[in-house]
């Protein structure tokens, strides 16, 4: 006869056995493997951080103080997009897609375009878009596994092996910069071509731009091109009211194209 004690005992044993078996099976088919599938679509985690250290989300507020970059003696990468020069050729968008093998239907970088007025009295305006590499990024705040992290040179990177794909970072990003890569099945976004930057090269979009509308450089160096441009021109960032302090600056942007575009039909 089965007593209650016997039943509980055997049930517990069966549970343990089943759990062990399940873990073994999952390991066999590679599902319970916490280690990443290195090198299939992306470099290893430490390669992504390069020679930079990362700043824990908890320390971001401390980092926003004036002395941080002096102490760290690091670069602060930033981009200026000079819309007086941009001709809307979409080359940055295309080269980014080619370089990073972005799946169809997703964009790390894209160029918005609008037309104001009715032809022949019409004018086109463009707005190249990419991740804004915020000083206080909502995505890093939101990420439950600290997979999204900000490097001490200001680039917001995703450590793909840690990303569980909860999509919360996509929901909180004010700039629509993020997406789930359907092949890698993690969040992905522009990261200023961070492996290239670590090697001393420019991001591909900056390199390809035929009119030099994109300028990339170090904000901590007062003599760099970005510092000079930001100092000598009225600049604007996207959604400044969010308090994210974006580090992609626009010279001469159009009001209607900067946020959500509302189409207007003229009279």
């Amino acid at each position: 006869m089965i007593t209650r004690r016997k039943f509980v005992k055997s049930a517990a044993l069966a549970t343990v056995a089943a759990a062990t078996g399940a873990v073994a099976v999952l390991k066999k088919i590679g599902l319970a493997n916490a280690q990443p599938e290195v090198g299939q679509y992306y470099p290893h985690i430490w390669d992504r951080l390069g020679n930079a250290k990362y700043i824990h989300p908890w320390d971001i507020d401390a980092r926003l103080g004036p002395d941080h970059y002096k102490k760290g003696a690091r670069e602060r990468w930033a981009m200026v997009i000079d819309l007086r020069k941009c001709v809307g050729c979409h080359l940055c968008e295309l080269v980014c897609r080619e370089h990073w093998d972005v799946p169809e239907g997703f964009w790390r970088s894209w160029v918005k375009a609008i037309q104001k007025g009715r032809p022949p009295n019409a004018k086109k305006y463009f707005l190249p878009r990419l991740c804004n590499q915020c000083e206080d990024p909502p995505c890093v705040t939101a990420c439950p596994t600290t997979a999204s992290i900000i490097r001490d040179d200001g680039i917001v990177v995703i450590r793909y092996e840690m990303c569980i794909g909860c999509r919360y970072c996509i929901a909180v990003c004010p700039y629509d910069s993020r997406f789930i890569n359907p092949r890698r099945k993690t969040a992905e976004k522009c990261d200023f071509c961070q492996p290239r930057v670590d090697k001393g090269e420019l991001p591909v979009c900056v390199e390809i731009c035929p009119v030099n509308a994109r300028i990339f450089g170090d904000l901590n160096d007062p003599e760099s091109d970005v510092s000079k441009l930001i100092r000598n021109n009225p600049v604007q960032v996207l959604r400044p009211e969010m308090g994210t302090e974006p580090q992609v600056y626009y010279i001469n942007p159009d009001m209607d194209i900067m946020g959500r575009i509302k189409e207007r039909r003229g009279r």
Partner: peptide, 21 residues
């Protein structure tokens, strides 16, 4: 709902004190 359901264990030992999740 995760894009990587098998990685949900990450969330148990990687803690981000600023994250509501």
């Amino acid at each position: 709902d995760l894009a990587q359901p098998q990685r949900f264990v990450h969330i148990l030992y990687m803690f981000n004190a600023r994250s509501m999740i």
